[in-house]
């Protein structure tokens, strides 16, 4: 076991890791940050997406030791300072962009990465960027609406698939 130190959501944190410890296991089990989910564990589903040095990565396909010294942002870091939902999280709630919520941490983190590079994406750009995030509940339409809304764009032009 070796000590790994990373800065998570602005706070320096340390824990013990083996060579084979995945970043997602380190976050969940060593640091107790269980907001990041393990979905498929095969790099397909994107539930485990976090930001490492500002880039969205699948934390089930990166070793904890590779993150030594890195700045990591998880879904726990997406809320506002007072603990209320951040803009992206609020948009997912407002537009019913989740049902069971299992994929949501990854969806929120991928959305944050997209909006950082492209503050006003088109519907096609949103769908292309979320290619690596799989949701089995929503059929994606409301997730796309939530991302549009989070970017401050009008969502009235999108097909309405609301839970009414």
């Amino acid at each position: 076991m070796s000590k790994v130190t990373i800065t998570v959501n602005g706070r320096e944190m340390s824990g013990e890791a083996e060579g084979r410890t995945l970043l997602v296991s380190f976050l969940r089990e060593a640091l107790g940050l269980t907001g990041t989910h393990v979905g498929c564990d095969t790099s397909q589903c994107g539930a485990c997406v976090v930001h490492v040095d500002g880039k969205a990565v699948k934390s089930c396909t990166m070793l904890a030791m590779e993150a030594e010294g890195a700045e990591v942002t998880t879904v726990e870091g997406m809320a506002d300072a007072d603990g209320s939902l951040g803009v992206i999280q609020q948009a997912f709630q407002d537009h019913h962009g989740l049902q069971c919520g299992f994929c949501t941490p990854g969806m929120v983190m991928s959305t944050a990465a997209l909006l950082k590079d492209n503050p006003t994406p088109s519907e096609a750009e949103i769908r292309a960027y979320l290619d690596g995030n799989i949701c089995r509940c929503t059929g994606y339409h409301n997730i796309v609406r939530a991302v549009m809304a989070a970017s401050g764009q009008d969502v009235s032009g999108l097909g309405v698939v609301a839970a009414e």
Partner: peptide, 9 residues
């Protein structure tokens, strides 16, 4: 190639 998160690694 792959998806955005894969392309970042």
């Amino acid at each position: 190639i792959g998806d955005p998160a894969v392309r970042n690694r």
